[in-house]
Write a protein that binds this DNA or RNA. Structure first.
Lengths: 227, 227
DNA sequence: CACTATTCTTGACCCGCATCAAGGAGGGTT
DNA sequence: AACCCTCCTTGATGCGGGTCAAGAATAGTG
C-alpha cells in the first residue's frame, strides 16, 4: 500500500541492463512499469502466454522451466535480484516458450513493451546494450547445449560448482542457491543422480556437503576432475 | 576476378536481416563487407577466435559446431543461403564459442562490426530488427535445450523431419540438406543410432528413405508418433 | 513438541543410446 | 574394371543415468 515510486526509479537505474541510462529514459521506464509480488510457488506466466513486456527481479527468486508430460519439468534458469527475464520474447510475435514460477516470495518489476521500445527509440546506445544483453544470454544457452551434449552429469555438476568460484585459488565455501531438486533439473539430472554425484565427489575428498552448504577445499583439484 | 560490387549490394538488401533497410544504410554495409569463398572442408573461424564482424551465406553450406575431445564434434547449426551467423558474438567481448566450417564450396559475405554498428546508429528501427533476429535465434536454442532434455532421439528426429513440413497435410517428399552424419550430430545422435531410427520409422511405414531422399506418406501419422 | 509434509538419500533394476567392430554401397579417379 | 575413399548400415556389448520404491533427514505447522 505505500507508494514505492521512488524505489522503482532507483531500482531500475541499478539494474545491470539499465545502469548507463539517463534520468529521462529511466523516467520513461518507470512510467511503464508495475510491481508484482508473487508468493512462493506462484506462477508469473505460463508457457504459451503472450508477452507484454519483461520482468526484473528486485528480490526473491524465480525459475524458468518447461513442463514435460507427466508433471516433471526442466529448469532452464534460476534468477535472483538484479536479473531480468522475458526480454527476448518481447521482440517476437511468439508466446513464452517456458513458464516462470516464484521459488520464494518475491518482488518483480514488469516493464511494458511500449516503455522499453520508447527507450530504445530515444537512446540508440541503449539498443546496443540490449543487443549485448541478449547476446550474453545466447552465449549462455550455447554453453548449456555444449554441456548437455558432450559432458557427463558429473562434469556438468563440477562446472556448476566452479562457476561460483570467482578466480579464487584455495578453498571456497558457499550455499546452493536453491533446493537440490531444482539445481538437479537445471543440470538436467534427476535428484537421485544429483545426490549420488555429490556423494562421489565428497568421497573423493573434492567437496564437503552439509545440507545446502558446499565446501571446496581445493578449487584447482576439483577443476582437474574428469571422469 | 570480376567486380562484384553490384551483386553485394543486391545480396545484402535481400538478406532477411537487412530487407527493410534504406539504400544508404545498405551502402554503408557494402563498404564494410568483403567476400569469402571457402572450399568444402575449410574453416571460417575456430572456436576461441576473436570476432570482427559477422557472416552471411550467399551460396553453399556452413556448419557451426564445437569440437569435443577425441576428434568428435557436436553440430549446433547447418546454415544455407540467406542465413547469417556470428552476430551475437560481435556484441560481446568474448571469442567465438563454436567453430564454422564449410560443408560445400561456398560464398560468404563478411560484414565488419564497425559498418554494422554504424547502420544501427543510423537507423534505429534496424536495431529492433537485429534484436528480433537475435531473439529468434535464442528461441531456437531454447527449443534445442528442450528437445535435448526431454525428448528421445526418435522424437527429435521426427521433429526435425516435420519442420520441413510447411503446413501441408498429406504426403511430403524432400532431400536431407546435409550428410546423415552431420544431421545426426545436429540432433545429438551418433550416425549409428540415426540410421537405426530411420530404419524403425521406415518399418513402421511412417517414412520411406532412399539415400538422402525422404518421403512422408502421411504427415499427420508421423506427427502422432511418440515412443 | 508431536505430526505432517517436503526434501533428500540409498538401493535394486532397467533401458536408451554410445561404443566397438565389420561389412555394404556408392562414386570418383585412373 | 579394379581401386580407394567416404558414407552408411548392421550387429554385439556395455555404461550412464533414469525409474521405482523405500527410508532418513529436515522443515514447517498447529
Amino acid at each position: 500500500m505505500p507508494n514505492h515510486k521512488l524505489d522503482v526509479s532507483e531500482i531500475l537505474a541499478n539494474l545491470p541492463l539499465f545502469r548507463q541510462l539517463g534520468r529521462d529514459d529511466i523516467a520513461l521506464l518507470v512510467q511503464g512499469s508495475r510491481e508484482i509480488r508473487p508468493q512462493k510457488g506462484e506462477f508469473i506466466f505460463q508457457k504459451g502466454d503472450p508477452s507484454h513486456g519483461f520482468y526484473a527481479v528486485v528480490h526473491g527468486q524465480i525459475k524458468l522451466a518447461f513442463p514435460s508430460l507427466q508433471g516433471a519439468e526442466k529448469v532452464v534458469a534460476i534468477l535472483g535480484p538484479g536479473q531480468s527475464f522475458g526480454e527476448a520474447v518481447m521482440f517476437m510475435e511468439k508466446p513464452y516458450p517456458v513458464f516462470a514460477q516464484a521459488l520464494a516470495d518475491s518482488l518483480l518489476l514488469h516493464i511494458s513493451k511500449q516503455a522499453l521500445f520508447a527507450a530504445i527509440e530515444h537512446d540508440n546506445s541503449f539498443a546496443r546494450k540490449m543487443l549485448a544483453g541478449l547476446s550474453i544470454r545466447l552465449h549462455g544457452l550455447i554453453h548449456d547445449v555444449e554441456a548437455y551434449s558432450l559432458r557427463s552429469g558429473a562434469q556438468r555438476l563440477v562446472g556448476y560448482l566452479l562457476q561460483n568460484e570467482n578466480g579464487k585459488d584455495g578453498a571456497l565455501k558457499f550455499e546452493l542457491p536453491a533446493s537440490k531438486q531444482v539445481i538437479a533439473s537445471r543440470l538436467n539430472l534427476t535428484p537421485e543422480t544429483f545426490s549420488r554425484i555429490l556423494h562421489q565427489l565428497a568421497e573423493a575428498g573434492l567437496i564437503q556437503v552439509d545440507g545446502r552448504s558446499i565446501t571446496i577445499p581445493d578449487v584447482e583439484a576439483l577443476r582437474q576432475y574428469e571422469p
